[in-house]
């Protein structure tokens, strides 16, 4: 399976409510809240494109754009399963 490569974290600042879920559960500590309590990707180079931030976001405010899937966002949760650190 081809490894996904990060293009960018598309963050909708108007929708983000700063709940911190994505920040706390990011396995690589890529995300942080800024002074306005909105999420920002501070270490995008560490991102493994597991999409758990995107999947857990209650506000649909974050999207992980990858090189292969690009804007059509057709990747499935199976992609993430292989790289996630989700526990039982």
């Amino acid at each position: 399976m081809a490894r996904l490569k990060l293009k960018e974290h598309l963050i909708n600042r108007d929708w983000c409510k700063g709940c911190n879920i994505c920040v706390h559960f990011c396995p690589k500590h890529v995300l942080e809240l800024d002074s306005e309590e909105k999420v920002v990707a501070v270490r995008p180079e560490d991102c493994i494109c597991c999409r758990l931030c995107e999947l857990r976001c209650p506000d649909l405010a974050i999207e992980v754009i990858t090189e292969q899937s690009d804007h059509d966002a057709t990747s499935t949760s199976e992609d993430a399963v292989n790289t996630s650190e989700q526990d039982d």
Binding site: K17, P58, D59, L60
Partner: peptide, 19 residues
């Protein structure tokens, strides 16, 4: 949007998963 639920409300995550 933004939806009306409180920050961190799990209902938004359920919406996300359902979609």
């Amino acid at each position: 949007f933004p939806q009306m639920w409180c920050p961190g409300c799990g209902h938004g995550t359920i919406l996300n998963a359902l979609l």
